[in-house]
Design a protein around this nucleic acid. Structure first.
Lengths: 124, 124
DNA sequence: TATTCTGGTTACTATTAGGTAACTACAAAA
DNA sequence: TTTTGTAGTTACCTAATAGTAACCAGAATA
């Protein structure tokens, strides 16, 4: 859920963080990318998300104008989601986060045995 | 607090979101910017954050290598924070979020009565 | 006839995050 | 002597978030 204090801030950066600064939204936006995707697909592709939370996040993304929702009046129902112009414009930011992370992350090295974890600086 | 599922993900993007994808960290990184700043200053400048949460977030940022902490052995104590190379490299991403937000945000209507001002200086 | 399919919603519970107040050290100032 | 100042930590409690299971429509399928 959105943080009301953040979204009502006088500071536009704070408001921006209020809308996209949580853990699920960047993941959802990244998974959708440039395609059109159905609710069930998102639920399958995104690990560890519950339908309830997915519904909530999608609703907020739509309200904030990052997402377009297309509901077909069929049975069983079909609903498709795709990024709006605003949502698409956010993708390059996610790409730069990926690059930043690849360059600077200290990643755990998983050895054959699960209990042995070593760390190293990931090289480009 | 960090999300363990995210930080242990096989997907590096998910891990990245696990470290910086919450509401406080982008704010803190943005406030620090290129300067060296003391704990008390951060506590004064950032609205609505408690010392406890600020301490927690700073500790995690340090553990994740975005932040350098300099504690002087004085009394009363003095502790200075500044961004590391990794943290500084994150600043352009925050700038692009600002640009993205300015371009696409539907700005909330701020009413001009005193009792509706959402932000005020902390009295401490 | 019973089951499946989809995209949710609802109620209830568990987990987690966050707020508040009290407390620490010791030096210097009032 | 008491207060002030800094940068926290700790315990306790509440508020917010997330998980789970049950339920819905109504057509198609077995």
């Amino acid at each position: 859920m959105r943080d009301e204090k953040f979204c009502n801030s006088h500071c536009s950066f704070t408001r921006a963080i209020g809308t996209i600064g949580n853990k699920w939204k960047p993941i959802i936006i990244n998974v959708i990318g440039t395609r059109t995707i159905r609710f069930g697909q998102l639920d399958n592709i995104i690990p560890h998300i519950s339908r309830k939370v997915l519904t909530e996040q999608l609703k907020e993304l739509e309200e904030d104008g990052l997402l377009e929702r297309l509901a077909y009046k069929e049975l069983p129902p079909r609903v498709e989601y795709k990024l709006s112009e605003k949502g698409l414009a956010f993708l390059p930011i996610l790409e730069s986060i990926k690059e930043w992370n690849c360059k600077y992350e200290v990643v755990p090295i998983m050895e054959n045995s699960d209990h042995l974890i070593k760390y190293q600086l990931k090289s480009r």
